[in-house]
């Protein structure tokens, strides 16, 4: 297994106003779809993207940005860790109670 730190990365955060999970795009803005995220192949790229994200946080747009390890698949980036793919995809359960 490749060391996690070598994996490609995308930068994510929660939007301040509503808490929604957002992903940093190539245009330097935020999208709610991970498919729109810009994948950073190396550490330098990831650090630069984090810089953009932190500046956005300083403008009260997002909260606590960080980088997430992903695998690049045909459908787009897929986070490697369970926590992160649940963040990307939403709860793994039917969020509305089934009865009634």
């Amino acid at each position: 297994m490749a060391r996690v730190t070598d994996a490609p990365k995308v930068v994510t955060a929660n939007r301040l106003q509503d808490g929604a999970v957002v992903w940093l795009t190539a245009a330097g803005d935020w999208s709610t779809r991970i498919a729109d995220a810009q994948v950073q192949a190396d550490a330098a790229g990831a650090e630069a993207a984090l810089g953009i994200a932190r500046a956005s946080a300083a403008r009260q747009e997002v909260v606590e940005p960080y980088a997430v390890d992903v695998a690049v698949e045909a459908a787009g980036p897929r986070p490697l860790k369970t926590r992160e793919w649940i963040r990307a995809a939403g709860p793994s359960i039917d969020a509305i109670p089934t009865a009634a």
């Binding site: 509503d18 808490g19 929604a20 606590e64 926590r83 649940i86 939403g90 709860p91």
Partner: peptide
Amino acid sequence: PLRLMNGLYLQLHAY
């Protein structure tokens, strides 16, 4: 701490 003292967390997908 101010929002937590009023029951508000930031969770994975929302507050």
